[in-house]
Amino acid sequence: MPIERTTDGGLRVTYIGTEAAFTDALSEQPEGVRIEVERTGTYTPAPRHIVSRLTER
């Protein structure tokens, strides 16, 4: 799932998008929301993930 609960009561969310989309999304956060980027890079879905079955077409 793209959303997981953390042991400290927070949420870990997986986002997929362009660098420009992240820049826009991270520039305006509500008060009290803390965001930490853990990792960036090329997205490769796990073999069992439904997205892995999509083709270029």
Rank of each mutant, 00 (worst) to 15 (best):
M1W: 02
M1K: 04
M1I: 04
M1E: 03
P2R: 01
P2T: 01
P2Q: 02
P2H: 06
I3D: 06
I3Q: 02
I3Y: 03
E4R: 09
E4S: 07
E4C: 06
R5C: 08
T6W: 00
T6A: 00
T6E: 00
T7M: 10
D8V: 09
D8Q: 05
D8K: 10
D8I: 03
G9E: 00
G10A: 02
G10E: 00
L11S: 08
L11G: 01
L11T: 07
V13L: 04
T14I: 14
Y15C: 12
I16Y: 10
G17T: 07
G17L: 04
T18P: 05
T18W: 06
E19K: 08
E19D: 07
E19T: 13
A20M: 03
T23R: 11
T23W: 06
D24A: 14
A25N: 03
A25E: 07
A25Q: 07
L26H: 14
L26D: 09
S27K: 12
E28C: 05
E28R: 09
Q29D: 03
Q29M: 12
P30T: 12
P30A: 14
E31S: 09
G32S: 10
V33E: 11
V33I: 15
R34Y: 11
R34K: 05
I35Y: 14
I35K: 05
V37W: 04
E38Y: 11
R39A: 15
G41H: 04
T42R: 05
Y43D: 07
Y43W: 15
T44K: 13
P45W: 14
P45N: 08
P45G: 09
A46E: 04
P47M: 06
P47K: 02
R48N: 13
R48H: 15
H49S: 07
H49A: 14
V51I: 13
V51G: 04
S52Y: 15
S52G: 15
S52N: 14
R53C: 13
L54Q: 10
L54T: 12
T55E: 13
T55D: 13
T55F: 09
E56A: 12
E56S: 11
E56N: 06
R57A: 11
